[in-house]
Design a protein around this nucleic acid. Sequence first.
DNA 1: CTGAAAGCGCTTACAG
DNA 2: CTGAAAGCGCTTACAG
Lengths: 338, 338
Amino acid sequence: MTINDVARLAKVSKKTISRVINNSPLLKQETRDRVLAIIEEVGYQPDPQARGLAFGSSFLIGLIYDNPNAQYVIDMQQGILDVIRGSGYELVVHPCSRQHPNFLSDIRKFVERQRLFGVVLPPRVSEDEALIEMFEAIGCPYSRIAAVSLDLPGRMVVTHDRQGAAEAARHLADLGHRVIGHISGPASFRSALERHQGVIEGLASRGLALDPRYYAEGGYTFESGILAAQTLLALDPRPTAIFAGNDEMAAGVIRAAREMGLDIPRDLSVIGFDDSPMAGKVWPPLTTVRLPIREMGAIAARKLLAQAPGAVPEQRETLVEPSLVVRRSTAAPLLSRV
Amino acid sequence: MTINDVARLAKVSKKTISRVINNSPLLKQETRDRVLAIIEEVGYQPDPQARGLAFGSSFLIGLIYDNPNAQYVIDMQQGILDVIRGSGYELVVHPCSRQHPNFLSDIRKFVERQRLFGVVLPPRVSEDEALIEMFEAIGCPYSRIAAVSLDLPGRMVVTHDRQGAAEAARHLADLGHRVIGHISGPASFRSALERHQGVIEGLASRGLALDPRYYAEGGYTFESGILAAQTLLALDPRPTAIFAGNDEMAAGVIRAAREMGLDIPRDLSVIGFDDSPMAGKVWPPLTTVRLPIREMGAIAARKLLAQAPGAVPEQRETLVEPSLVVRRSTAAPLLSRV
DNA sequence: CTGAAAGCGCTTACAG
DNA sequence: CTGAAAGCGCTTACAG
C-alpha cells in the first residue's frame, strides 16, 4: 500500500495525498477528510524512508549518552518515546565514551549517515562544547539537558540540581546536624558543581557553613563514595551527616560507615541524589533527591520536535524542579537526641 | 557526496560503486580496491535511507522489550550495538506492554512502517507466541532470548537459567542448609519455571527435596519478595536459606528478614538472580547468579544479521551459561556452625 | 486548491 | 566483469 494506491482509490493525484500526510494548509477540508478516511480504511502508512530520502532528513531521533546510570537512560528513552509516539519519528540509541579518540568523528558520522532529524543530549555529553560546536557546524538540531543554562532557551532543559541539594542540606540542618560532610561528583560535571553550590547555599540559609575539610570530590561511583567517606568519617569531630552527590556514592558512604561500626541513621545520616532503583531497597532506605527523568526526556523531545521546519519554535527554557524524598537514612544526630 | 560523485571520481558507473558497497563477488579486485580507496579518501557513506528504499527493507534493528530491569535492557542494547557497529545498521528501541490492548498491532505497525530489518526479543516478549506468529506472518526476521529452546536453532539464544539456579541450590546445600525456601517469579515466565526446576534438581543432586510448603510464587518485584518471605519465614521450622528468583525479590527477602530481626547471613542465607547493580551495594552484598546480558545481546544480534539475504545462516542454537557470584549473604546455617 | 514532471540516492533486472 | 534503464515511495518546484 503506497501513496499511489491511495491516490488511485481517492481519485486524486499523489501530490494531494502528500499534502494530507504533511498537513498542508492549502487543501480543501472536504478533500482532506475524504483522503484521511481512505488512509484510515486501508491502513496506509507513509514510508519514512521514502519521505526521508525526499526530505533530505530522516525521521530518526538520536539519544546520545555516556551516562552509566541505566535507570536514568531507560527513563529518558521512555520520556522521549512518550512524545514521539504516533508522530512517525523513532528513537535510535547511541551510547558513547568521551574518552574514545574518535568520540567526535564517530558521532558525526552517525548523525550524517543516518541524516538524523536531531539529537537529545543528557549530561554529561550535553556539557561538551566541542560536541555542540560540531552539531552547529553540520546543522543538526539538538536539545540539551543540564544543571545550568548553556544554550538558547528553546534548546535547554535545565534541572535545578542546586535547589535539590539545598533542600537536602536544609533537611539535615533542620534535623539538628551541625557537622555535615559533602561528597561531590567530579568537578568536570556541572551537576556536581551545582549540587555542591546548593549544599553551601542550603546550609547558609540556616546560618551554617560547609567546612572545606568536610568536603571531598568523588567520582559518582560506589567505590569513590567509600573512599571519600573513609576520609570524612576519620575527621574529628566526626560528621553526623553526609550528603553524597548521587545514590551510588551514598551507598558507598553507607558501606564505609557500616564497616566502621556506625549505625545509620543513629550515628550518621546519609542523603543521596537520583532516587535510583536501589535507593528504596537498601537498608536503611535512602533519603535522596529525585529528578523526573522521564518527564525531562519528554520535554527535551518536544523541544527538539519544535525545531522541525514547519513547527512553532520553543522560546522558553524549561526549569525542572527536583524533590526531596525522605526515607530512613536521615534522622536527628545522636547528641541532640540525648 | 553521493554514489554519483564517487562514480565520477572513479570513472566507473554508479552500479560498480554499488557493487563495492554490497560486497558483490563479481568484481575485479583491482576495481574494488581503487573504488574503496576513493570512498575512503572522500569519506563517502552510502545513504541507508536510499539503500533501504531500493532494498525494500531498512537498516534498522528493533529491540522490543517489556523488561522492567533497566540494567538488563541497557546491557542488551550495548551488546547489540557492539555487533552492529560499523555494519551500517542502527538500533531502534521499542518498549511495550503486553497488557496493552493494541500490543500486537502497535508492534506490527512499528515493524511494517519502518520496514525493520529485524527484531531482537528478550524475555518476556520472546515467549509470546502470538507475537512470534505475527512476525512470521509479515516475514520479519527475529532472534529470541529465552530460558528454554522455543524456535529454530538459528533464532535462539538459550540461557541456562536452570543450571544457574541448580548451582545456587547446591551452594546452599553444600553450606549445610537443609530447610531451604524458594520464591519464584510468575509461572507465566519461562525463566521462573526453569529456575524453579533448577532449584529442585540442584537440591536433588544433594539428596534434598524442595518441600512445597517452602515454595512461593512471587512477581519478580521487591514487594512480592517481602510478602513471600513473610510467609516462608513464618514457617516452622523456619528456613535457614531462601533462593529468590531475582535480585529484586532477594532484596525484599532481606528487608522482610531484617524487619523480623533476623541477621543475614547468620539467621538466613539469601541468594538472588541477575547480579543487578544493587546486588553488590546492599548489605550484606548479595550472593546471586549472573547472566552475561551484553554478550547475549551480541549473540542475538549476530543471529539476526545472519538472516540477511546474502549472509550465511546460523544453524546452531547458542546456550549461555550463568555463573554463581558468591558474596556475603550466604553462609553456613547457625545450627551447623554451633 | 490540485496536478504532471523531475528528483532524492540507491538497487534490481537486464544487457553486453 | 561492467553499464544504461527503470524503479523503490516519497517530496520539491513549477504550473495552472
